[in-house]
Design a protein around this nucleic acid. Sequence first.
DNA 1: ATAACATGTGAACAGATATTCATATGTTAA
DNA 2: TTAACATATGAATATCTGTTCACATGTTAT
Lengths: 122, 122
Amino acid sequence: MANIYEQDAERCEYLCVHDSVVKKVLDEMPDEEKLFDLAELFKIFGDSTRVKILYVLFEAELCVCDISTLLGATQTAVSHQLRILKSSKLVKSRKDGKNVFYSLADSHVTGIINLGMEHINE
Amino acid sequence: MANIYEQDAERCEYLCVHDSVVKKVLDEMPDEEKLFDLAELFKIFGDSTRVKILYVLFEAELCVCDISTLLGATQTAVSHQLRILKSSKLVKSRKDGKNVFYSLADSHVTGIINLGMEHINE
DNA sequence: ATAACATGTGAACAGATATTCATATGTTAA
DNA sequence: TTAACATATGAATATCTGTTCACATGTTAT
């Protein structure tokens, strides 16, 4: 970036709030990478198919076939989404013969979804 | 949809799990609309700019100009995102002369973000 | 060995979305 | 009133993403 003045040209030149507030905000702020990862995590929850998958796994571990049947989605679509959920460590899998059973990876999943539901139900 | 057999052609014909489990899963499952809304809510959190905005609002209410300065983003981009955050009832606004001050709308916001952070920090 | 089955995966396509640009609206100070 | 400022908004664009399709992999039963 060539020039800070050019870069900041669109913004106001001074802050409305007090310096102490600015300092506190910047102190509490996690670094860029953490914030990116956090957004990436929520992006995972931000899809109907994935939320449904997580919901059906609340009660029991299920194989890919059962999940797609319960959701009314194709096996392929579910498989793609399970891959994403697994790489984000939200679900884990266990192979048993031809089947692969998926289950929730940790308790944060239910916590996050339940809080989200609380916000919806208002 | 023409035919349920055609529709379900790709999936297995029977469920691996017991009927009692299927019944429980379907009982606990919120309806389609709720699940859609839930995914829409998390979609809001699934963007770096919006997560950053929510974070800077943890400490204090801020005007658009301050937010964009603190984030290093353009006023326009921030304004667009604030509109989305407001329509999802995650932030509220208060007008004061030329400025518009934004603040978090309710406690669910911090709860959801903190749970997300817990998951990241593992 | 071969057929039937369950799952995984890469490419392609369509739809969604975040940013930028240009401009409009509304407010304060001169 | 006019200039400067803060914010909002619509259109355009480029990027991202979820599904589908075709097919590969791996497992079980005959």
